[in-house]
Design a protein around this nucleic acid. Sequence first.
DNA 1: CTGTATCCGCCGCGATACTG
DNA 2: CAGTATCGCGGCGGATACAG
Lengths: 128, 128
Amino acid sequence: MKTDPRPQTLSEKVRDGNLFSEQCPSREVLKHVTSRWGVLILVALRDGTHRFSDLRRKMGGVSEKMLSQSLQWLEQDGFVNRVAYPVVPPHVEYSLTPLGEQVSEKVAALADWIEMNLPQVLQQREVA
Amino acid sequence: MKTDPRPQTLSEKVRDGNLFSEQCPSREVLKHVTSRWGVLILVALRDGTHRFSDLRRKMGGVSEKMLSQSLQWLEQDGFVNRVAYPVVPPHVEYSLTPLGEQVSEKVAALADWIEMNLPQVLQQREVA
DNA sequence: CTGTATCCGCCGCGATACTG
DNA sequence: CAGTATCGCGGCGGATACAG
């Protein structure tokens, strides 16, 4: 008989997230990453550092408030790096962290697929 | 000199979507696919056909209304197949279409990444 | 069992004004 | 330029009731 069935510590049990569990914090991360503007931010930052107003101009229809809030979410999750230069007028640069580059890769793959396959989807809608 | 520079028809220009364009319909598709329950539906259906109540039980915290609505969005976009058997009690089965399997692959890749890397993210939050 | 219909509270989000 | 603070509305989404 086996003696050490590896009691599986608590830290091992909760090591990974489970999106199907209602209280799992991974739900919140998903929310930030897949949020309306979060997706576009992560994709936009893939080709390098951007300033606040650059992002705002690039992304159609985002308000200052929501852009700021979305950036803060992604920053707190460790996906986005914020660097403020203490000059006048203010100058702030946003970029992807190593962790952020990983998620953005997945997000961009999804975004690209949608852009590429939009015709098929629109065609499906007409049929339906 | 070349004679036929391929005038590039309108249909070619707008063939693909552009998520950074405010009015582009790809925004709506993205919204459906990355919606709170849309993500979980697409991931859940990857391991085969599910009934309505199966999905509801599997996904923590979704109301009937929102599950039904999310399924209809994905159905109209051609990602999900709905088959109703005219029996009592009613029996309805949901599954992925070929198109749906493609998006779900991208979505699942993102979802998996988040679940796998949740510890790093939570650690980043503490530092911040 | 698998939905639809209706009501309604809450807050996400935009608009505006103001600050460093 | 890069935000924060505040207000107010619309609509998302939950709860409930009801239908096939």
